[in-house]
Amino acid sequence: MPTFASRGILLLLPFLLLACGGSGGDRPAATTDRPVIGVSVLTLTHAFFQDLTAALEAEADAHGFDVVITACEFDIARQKNQVSDFVVRQVDAIVLAPCDSRAIGTSILEANAAGIPVFTTDIAALSEGIDVVTHVATDNYEGGRLAARAILDAIGGSGQIAIIDHPEVESVIMRTNGFFDELEARSAPVEVVARLPGGGVKDRAFRVAEDILQAHPDLDAIFAINDDTALGAVAAIEKAGRAGTVRVVGFDGTLEARRAIRDGQIFADVIQHPDRIGRETVQAIVRYMNGEPVEDEILIAPSLYTQQDALADPLLQESE
């Protein structure tokens, strides 16, 4: 006497099982002799982390490692689960770009207790008592100083500026610290008229920029703490019809931002080198596995990228 209910279950099952199995076949098997690196980054929707993980994967493969890449997509609880799963799978090394520099502490302790080495990349972990082998990142403080110099260039040394911030993230705090220190060191006659959080994402930055433009008709420039923020600001500036009068300096050097720089929408970018960060991270893991000393912090110098660089950029010519 099969009821509709049990028939319903039977209908549902094969589909459920198919769906849940997903791409189970092509995963890196935990049983091969190749050591496994478990990676959990902040997000895979940013070009920065896409470039970083791609370079990391290629470099790891060259050194005989398998890589499992996950992203927490801004949910720290999810990142905690991902690290727990890495510990269960007994990966040989864990690479993290923490969603929250402090809340990640308990997860790192869990990996430490299992004897799995932890490496952080781009975003540092700041909890006390944790053991991180090394932190590989852009020298964000230096990048902030570069950005301040670019802004001064853009506005001719004096004027009103605004910052679209994202203070939840440690690397951004470093950028803004460097930015303000450089302004102060040069005792530049600039007025910071607004400093608002834009979440590091385009749509929120767009709305924040609109409000800033509304409130400050004499604004000369915006420092955007990453490229998505910069592109959001550019959209707002163009909508307000103030392109050319309000300059934007961004941070990261994604492809989309490079195009905007070439087209004069963004004045300049402090560019990071995510591919180098990914490669250096793997090289640090290799040195660690070989029992060689690894320095506590590996800083990758950023550089300034202007319209001149964009016009000569082979990356932009290829993609057109």
Binding site: C20, G22, S23, G24, V68, E73, Q82, D85, R89
Partner: peptide, 20 residues
């Protein structure tokens, strides 16, 4: 958890959960 252990990436997980 099962999808994490079998290496199904997180975007697919959302789709599966929606269907469930």
């Amino acid at each position: 958890n099962g999808m994490n252990l079998t290496g199904v990436e997180s975007y697919t997980q959302k789709v599966v959960l929606g269907f469930v």
